[in-house]
Write a protein that binds this DNA or RNA. Sequence first.
DNA 1: ACACAATACATGCACGCGCATCTAATGCAA
DNA 2: TTGCATTAGATGCGCGTGCATGTATTGTGT
Lengths: 127, 127
Amino acid sequence: MDAEHVVETWRYVLAKHSQAMCALERELGERHGLGPSEFEVLDRIVHHDRKLRIQELCDEVHLSQSALSRVVGRLEKAALVSRGVCDADRRGVFVSITEEGRARHAEALPTQRAVLNEIFSGEPAAR
Amino acid sequence: MDAEHVVETWRYVLAKHSQAMCALERELGERHGLGPSEFEVLDRIVHHDRKLRIQELCDEVHLSQSALSRVVGRLEKAALVSRGVCDADRRGVFVSITEEGRARHAEALPTQRAVLNEIFSGEPAAR
DNA sequence: ACACAATACATGCACGCGCATCTAATGCAA
DNA sequence: TTGCATTAGATGCGCGTGCATGTATTGTGT
């Protein structure tokens, strides 16, 4: 990939990221009361379908550890996930999804897919 | 582009955006005292090589009008650009780059290119 | 056992962002 | 001209983020 293509790709990433984040924030927020980060975290937990350590989540979402801690805090306050101590390593924290969280995720997933389809379908990624 | 590819592309965009923004913030900040947004605005002005209206810039950078206004404010305070009233439409504001701004941009450009090359070279974009 | 580095997560803080709003200038209709 | 909607850009505000740090727990070397 030559220098010109690199810059072209970077512009593509910037544009799509901006469009998608903006649309996701609006749609997920208005229709389901979720921010993109909140949805992302719910989505990762649902995908794994088990309790996850905070740090495991940290590897999968593009958030700092502190930001993730706060997202989980908001989700817990909304009763969409619950935190529990990890017995094996009592420094650790397990996060598990609640029934309400699972329902909210299932409800929001089609919205996310629709937004992404709108933005990405048809246009090939610049290489 | 089918649904699976859409999600795959979205993950690619998220990952690359995160990596690149993080690295750009660090490198441009430490070496040149510029944030990614500041650099982006300087870069756009240099590219056009003329005075630009705030709104023209707004179309090219992925920032809200208010955010752009503040970025230009910071750049002006750093003497890298100067603001001037637009005679044709006195609501408008022209932004032009100063010599110092041009120099700073020239200095930072290789850093930006190096960061982007590091992140994008070799790996094809997921379509 | 003890002291100390390392790790997991939470939290204080500063900062940049978008939204809503404000001010000033322009366009337009009567 | 007068009155009002519209537009350009600046600004108050709340919020989410990352960085630095704090607290608690675990690992390690002596």
